[in-house]
Design a protein around this nucleic acid. Sequence first.
DNA 1: CTCTATTTGTGCGTATGTATA
DNA 2: GTATACATACGCACAAATAGA
Lengths: 247, 247
Amino acid sequence: MQTSVVTIAELERRSGVALWRQIADALRAHIGDGTVRPGAKIPNEVDLAAHYGVNRHTVRRAISVLRAEGILEARRGDGTFVAQKPMSYPLGSDTRFSDIVSGEGRVPHGALLAHETIEADRTIASGLAIASGGLCVQIDSVHTADGIALSTATSWFDAIRFEGLGATFAACGSLTEALKRHGVARYFRRSTAVSARLATDQDCARLDIPGGSVVLVTRYVTVDDAGAPVQLARTTFAAQRVELLVK
Amino acid sequence: MQTSVVTIAELERRSGVALWRQIADALRAHIGDGTVRPGAKIPNEVDLAAHYGVNRHTVRRAISVLRAEGILEARRGDGTFVAQKPMSYPLGSDTRFSDIVSGEGRVPHGALLAHETIEADRTIASGLAIASGGLCVQIDSVHTADGIALSTATSWFDAIRFEGLGATFAACGSLTEALKRHGVARYFRRSTAVSARLATDQDCARLDIPGGSVVLVTRYVTVDDAGAPVQLARTTFAAQRVELLVK
DNA sequence: CTCTATTTGTGCGTATGTATA
DNA sequence: GTATACATACGCACAAATAGA
C-alpha cells in the first residue's frame, strides 16, 4: 500500500454509493487480497485524500469504519496500521482465564479495579436469585495477556453469602481462590449470552482500545455444585484481539 | 426524552473528554434509566445540537455511536428511535434456524441468494479437508423471522461429493433437506468461532441494517456421522436483533 | 396522487487540539 | 523543541428518504 498508491483511484461520484464507502471497500480489498500485510503502515490521511481526490474527512470516515471492523489500527502522531489476527478464547462451563492464556504461551494477569457493596437492581436480583433491592457485592476487573488487555469484567455476588468477598479478592488476586475461601470449592457456568456492540468510553479506557472499536459482551451466571447461583457476570472482550470459541 | 430536553445541557468544554462522548453518555443514561422507552422517538439532530449548544455533526457522532451499540435506530426522513431488545439464538451442535425461530413464536424463512462453483482457497480447503485449489460449491443465503433479516450465511461444500447441491437447495429451499438428498442424513457442528465487527456494505444490504451497525460473525464446520467435514460456514448476525446463547 | 416540510445522510472547507516520533 | 499525523469541532450546502397535507 505504501507505494501502491500510484494505482489510479476510480471513485464513481454520483453512483448512489457514498464515497467513504467506496474508499473503505477499496482499502479492505487491498488488505484482504494480501497487497498490504498485517502490521504495515498505510499512507497518511492527507495523502489518501489527495489520492482519491476527496476531502480528508471522507477518508477518515472510511478509515474509522475499518478500525471498527478490527482491520485497521490508528496511533495518533504515528500513523495507521493494518491490525494483527486475534487470539482464540474458548467458552466452556469451566473456562478459567489464566489457563486459556497460559495455554497459548502468553502471560496472564488479572487486576482488581474496584469493589463495592450496592443494592441489586431487578436484573441482578433475578440472576442471583435474591430479593430485588437486596445487597450485592460488585467487583470490576481487567484481564491481560502479555500486558495487553483482552477483557474487562463486572461481577455481582450475594452480599449476605459472600460478605467481604471484594476484600478477599483484593488480597489474594484470584476470584477462584477468593471463592474457595468463602466456601465455594467449584463453580460452573450455566449458560452464556453473547452480544456485540460498539465500545463505550469506559470499555475503551479499561481495554486501552481506540474509540469506535467493537466489543464482544458475554453475560452468564455461575452456580455451585448444589446448583445455587454464585455469580452474575458481564465480560467485555476487545473484538480486535479476541475471538470466542464455542464447544 | 421528547419533552425532557428542557433539562439544561451541561457539557464541559475543555475537560479532555470529547463533546460527542459526553453527549453519547448523556443520551445513553437517559435511555438506560428508563427516561426514554424502547420505540420512542428522540429529538431531531438540529434540536439536539441547539440544546447542547454544539454543531450538528457533533450530535450525529454521538448518535452514530449509540446506533452501533444497538441502542438507537435512525430512519432518514423520519427520525431516530430507541431500539427494541434482541432475540436469543442458541448456539449448539444441532442448531437449526427454523426450529429456533419457530420456538420463539415467529415465522422463519430462509432464502437462497446465490450459488456457484469456485476454486477453494487455503482456508476453505483446510476446513473441508480437500486439496487447495479443488472445486467447492458456495451458497449464500439470508434468514428472516417475521420478515426481518436476522442473519446471512455463506457456506462451502466439497463440489465432488456434493455436485449440484446449489440447485438442490434452490429447489427444496432447505439446506437440511438438500443435504439429505445428497446422502447426509444428519450433520453436527464441531466448534464455533465467534467474532464481531462493523457491518460491511454487503452485510447492510443483505440484513437491511444501516451502515455503522455491529454484526456478530460465527465460523464453523459441520461434520457427518462418520466425522467427515460436510460444510464450512460463516454466518453473520445483526447484533441489534440477535444475541447468541451458548450451552 | 402530488407537493411540501421534515429529518437523516453525505461531503467540503477550515481551524485548533493533542499525542508521537 | 519541532514536525508529523491523528482527533475534535464548527459552519455550510445539498441529497435522499419519509411522512403528511
